[in-house]
């Protein structure tokens, strides 16, 4: 009986809180916030009509797409397979939230940061396969562009995440320990503390640049470049496949920014208590605001410029931060 109850709790964690339902709501509210912020930057109003201040607009968009009964797609696109890949990406992201200490049901183990990196990689693979698997030129270009950038941003994200967790949970490399009991507070000497902060800052710079490219925000929105390749990897999708692809994108942004905000500002730590979760959400919106304001003040890069930029700054910084985190 005990293992069954544990398993049901795990399913609740993955599907409801802090998994699928929570991430969906957070992702769509963040999309509304992001769209409002970008609209203000561009002297527009942004979402306005659905719900107070247009907050329900992203929900309405996704609802409308999910319940369309006919999926119009390209002649050779394996639409049902793509639908499964997208759902797998969303569920894998939701399952990875079981490693975050947001409820008493969270799971922890030594080196579980590697499990998180592994599970979230499904989403990146799904994104590039949506494009490559659509068997059509524009999605093909989008998929190729994403897959090419993936070769650089995934290692950067992995390396900088490991360095941040190594500083915050030096003995266990556990994500839950890094978030709930950050080791930076226990640094004995001032020099050690300075090294810790320097490592976190270097890792944070590299992580944030790689995050912009992973989540296809400007200046790395190359795979979907609407004016060039007609929406790129999404060009041949419609109905539920398009709705779920947009949802995958939003869920990925919200999960990564949530984690990043709480690793970057480890005080107060995340605990499974309402006040602590509110604090972590405040950190999330602060970091999201900064990321969006920086990102959308730039124009889109070309693919080789983006690759060079990713290799020159974030890759180098992440390797330095990893070396620092393992030497101190």
């Amino acid at each position: 009986m005990e293992p069954l109850i544990e398993f049901l709790k795990l399913i609740f964690t993955a599907l409801v809180y802090p998994g699928l339902a929570f991430l969906t709501i957070l992702g769509l509210v963040s999309q509304w916030y992001r769209r409002k912020l970008i609209a203000r930057l561009q002297n527009r109003v942004g979402p306005k009509y659905v719900g107070p201040a247009g907050i329900l607009q992203p929900f309405a968009d996704i609802y409308k797409l999910l319940f369309v009964k006919e999926l119009v797609t390209g002649a050779y696109t394996p639409a049902r397979l793509i639908l499964y890949l997208v759902i797998l990406g969303i569920v894998a992201l939701s399952a990875s939230t079981a490693l975050l200490p947001l409820t008493p049901l969270y799971i922890r183990a030594e080196y579980d940061v590697l499990v998180f990196i592994y599970l979230t990689f499904y989403a990146s693979i799904a994104m590039s396969l949506i494009g490559l698997g659509s068997v059509s030129p524009y999605p093909g270009f989008g998929g190729v562009r994403y897959a090419t950038m993936l070769l650089v941003f995934e290692p950067v994200i992995a390396i900088s995440l490991i360095s941040m967790v190594k500083v915050l949970a030096p003995n266990t490399l556990s994500l839950a320990d890094a978030l709930s009991n950050p080791g930076i507070l226990r640094a004995q000497q001032p020099l050690q503390w300075i090294f810790h902060v320097a490592t976190i800052i270097l890792a944070a710079i590299s992580f944030s640049i790689a995050l912009l490219s992973k989540t296809m925000l400007k200046p790395f929105d190359i795979p979907e470049a609407e004016t060039e390749i007609a929406g790129g990897y999404l060009a041949e999708l419609s109905g539920p496949a398009l709705g779920l692809s947009i949802l995958l994108h939003e869920v990925e942004i919200s999960l990564y920014v949530f984690l990043f905000a709480n690793l970057l500002i480890p005080i107060p730590p995340i605990l499974p208590a309402p006040l602590s979760i509110v604090m972590s959400l405040i950190k999330y919106f602060i970091v999201l605001t900064i990321l969006v304001l920086v990102a959308y003040s730039m124009g889109r890069l070309k693919l080789d410029q983006a690759l060079r930029a990713l290799i020159k700054v974030p890759l180098l910084l992440s390797i330095i931060s990893l070396a620092l985190s393992f030497t101190i």
Binding site: V68, K69, E70, L71, V72, T73, G74, A75, Y76, T77, A79, R80, L83, Y84, S136, P137, Y138, A230, A235, E236, G239, P240
Partner: peptide
Amino acid sequence: SLRTRIRRTELY
């Protein structure tokens, strides 16, 4: 997947 009907068009 079961409730979605698929209509194929030419490549875009």
